[in-house]
Amino acid sequence: MQIYFVEAVLLVFLILITCAVIFCKDILSAVVIYSSFSFTAVLLYLMMGSPDVAFTECVIGAISTIFFVAVLRKIDRWCD
């Protein structure tokens, strides 16, 4: 029973993080919050019993964060 409670809390976290990414004004902080979305998804996948998918999500989350930060650095739009 407790495991469902933890899963529900993680799902609520996912929704809150998504809303924060959508309504965030600063692009760089949106990227960082999006990496926390990836981390929460990793925890959810682990609790659902698929370490394979969790591992993939972890690595791809890191890579996409690197991509976003590289693009932001190149186009020189750190704020707003």
Binding site: D52, F55, T56, V59, A62, I66, A70
Partner: peptide
């Protein structure tokens, strides 16, 4: 074991990308 070619390639590329950045 969990993981395979895709995950290994992604991890190796993370190492390369971090060092290049």
């Amino acid at each position: 074991s969990p993981g395979g070619g895709f995950q290994a390639g992604a991890l190796l590329s993370v190492g390369v990308l971090l060092s290049r950045i």
